[in-house]
Amino acid sequence: MIGHGCEVPLWSDVDVESVADRVRLVAFDLDNTLARSRLPMSGDMSRAIAALTRMLPVGVITGGRFALVTSQVLSMLDDTADLSSLHLMPTSGASYYRWDGSGSWRQIYAIDIDEHRRHAVIASFERRARELGLWEEHVWGERIEDRGSQITFSALGQQAPLEAKLTWDPDGSKRQRLTQAVAADVPDLLVRSGGHTSVDVTDKGIDKAFAVTRLSQELGIDVGQMVFVGDRMSEGGNDYPAAKAGTMAIRVAGPHDTLQWCDRLLKALRPVRGRTDQTPLPTPH
């Protein structure tokens, strides 16, 4: 487990052979880890993820909704991927999907915020963003998205280009001010910075630590036997809770790093195990 203030190792500094000996599941953040914001995975990444699914369970844990997992990940996988090995956890683990074996994805659970509190969050986002001068005149797409289990404010809109996102709040201070203001309005909910321009609200306790812990319970795999790969692994980043929970956390700067890490892990896994060496997974319930 990562101690307070400790740095998560960069992918290139990790002993991949040691990881290959211990790992029973590999989980990934999505945006800027598997793919650029809102864009599909590359062909090379898709082939690497498909190869991993044939060796061991693979999780995708993201603050985005299921539709984004579909467009960025699932739409890019071909029939060489073992879909039964995929574990999809949108909205930071507030919902969980498994392949049902008959052509569709089954929702195993969803932890939704009740309607009254969702309305309160939406009203707070608009009021506080206007007060703080963060209600931008021009946006690309939806600004406040009600995902049921998560409410997300995207300062530049859901479809904003990556270049605009990267320059809007490079030091995170705008998101921090908005987070603090909204948290004061809805103290019974968890308010935290999301992506480059976003702030997310979920029920308290719903973060990527919750997600990997819940996945551990669902599959009977110790958290310490899980790898979690993410780009926001500094303290305060939305991937950092997965490191704090005790996973073998790995830091990347973007999809290019992730692909290189996957290639290294696949080479290390092939001599020592195949997909059939894994403990059989439980069927969805």
Rank of each mutant, 00 (worst) to 15 (best):
G5D: 14
C6W: 07
P9V: 13
A27V: 00
L34D: 09
M41L: 12
M41C: 11
I49T: 11
A51D: 15
R54Q: 14
R54Y: 08
P57A: 08
V60I: 15
I61P: 02
G63E: 11
R65H: 14
A67V: 11
L68E: 14
V73F: 03
L77T: 05
A81V: 10
S85T: 12
P90V: 09
S95V: 04
R98L: 11
W99N: 11
D100K: 01
R106K: 10
I111C: 06
D114M: 03
I122E: 15
S124F: 00
E126T: 14
R127V: 07
R127S: 13
R128T: 08
L132T: 06
H138P: 01
V139E: 07
G157A: 11
E163P: 00
E163C: 02
Q180M: 09
D185V: 08
D185H: 00
P187G: 09
D188C: 07
R192P: 00
S193Y: 05
G194H: 08
S198H: 02
K204V: 15
D207H: 03
A211S: 05
A211T: 08
T213D: 06
E218Q: 13
F228L: 03
N238G: 04
D239H: 05
Y240R: 07
A243M: 10
A243W: 14
G254L: 04
L269S: 07
P271V: 09
V272M: 06
P282D: 08
T283L: 10
H285C: 03
